[in-house]
Simulated assay, not measured.
Amino acid sequence: MELGHIVNNNQTKAETDEILRKTRGIKELFQSKKGRKILGGCLEDKLIVVEFMQPSTRTRLKCELAGNWLGATVKVHDEIAKTSMAKGESWFNHLLTFSEAGADILAIRHPENFLPQRLALLCIEYHFREKIINLGDGNYLHPTQGLGDLFTIEEHHRKKFGKEPLKIAIGADMKARAIHSLVMALGKYPVELTLVSWQKPEYLMRREFLQEFLENGVKFTEIDKLPLGEKFDVIYWVRYQIEHGPEGEKEERQTQYNEDFPVTPEFLNAHLKDDGAFLAPGPMTKEID
């Protein structure tokens, strides 16, 4: 199955199922020395260019390691000042350079919303060879994080996933791009979503995502705190997105957020089923006790 560019989470259910199946196979192979040797030849003739124009620890490390483990040549740019973009180079010429150099993949994180999608369209229009992988664009999407989280949920609830509705609580800063991608990925499967957030416009889920859920028959409710006694199969909790917060109020809002949405043993005992899974995409600050 040829997926092409991965710049959002609009893959079909069949494509998503195939991604999950292949990921399980890779994970199984990685458990043995023989399997790792097999994996090491999968991309041995491929060139992956990785560009991080925003800070990253986990995504950058995972991207580099994955490329290396699969045998690819991986080249990393982590500062725009070290590329010709600092001299005014256009995105067209940026992509053309990588295409002419033989790049097969450009994996990019950028502070501008929708940029990876635009780059993919340029590659299609001008027949550039590289495929674009979105590692996070502004506060919009993080497709690889969403697929990774979906895989974790599927692995944990293998017997129920896709067969019966999973009760999933997601909180609490709904502007987080990891949440946007996860809910789009989950929308292909039977789930009952509870979105937990401060009931203020700057923290609520984007309306276009909620509209997409409604159009696809996904059940969800929006509340400002979890009901006492209600338990979930999955709790997915993100930190306050301080990098996107208003200047002059970041520290104050961080403190208030941690007070309003703490993650403690008492919280998990009250709201997570005995066989449930708690997911918290990094980085962590002070919200988990």
Rank of each mutant, 00 (worst) to 15 (best):
N113K: 01
V218S: 05
L20H: 15
H94Y: 15
A103T: 13
V50T: 07
E259Y: 09
E125V: 06
L268A: 12
K131C: 03
Q117E: 11
K131H: 13
L121M: 10
D260T: 11
F232V: 04
K286D: 13
A103C: 13
I132N: 09
F114N: 02
K37I: 03
M184E: 06
K27V: 02
L226Y: 07
K22R: 11
P143C: 02
Q241T: 06
R24Q: 03
N216E: 10
E247V: 02
L150H: 07
K34P: 10
A280Y: 04
E208P: 12
K34T: 15
E287R: 15
G282Y: 12
P116M: 06
Y240F: 12
W69D: 00
H142K: 00
D78L: 11
H142I: 00
D260C: 13
R158F: 15
V49G: 02
L147H: 00
P227I: 13
S197L: 13
D289H: 12
Q241M: 02
G245Q: 09
D149S: 05
E2F: 05
H180L: 08
K175L: 01
K82N: 15
K82G: 14
I132W: 09
K22S: 07
F114L: 00
F30R: 15
A280K: 02
L115F: 01
M174Q: 14
Y140V: 09
M53S: 06
F232S: 04
F220N: 12
G148K: 01
V7Y: 00
M284D: 01
F114C: 04
K62E: 02
G171K: 14
N216C: 08
F128T: 01
Y189P: 01
K22T: 08
Y240T: 08
F267S: 02
L141G: 00
A185K: 01
D17F: 05
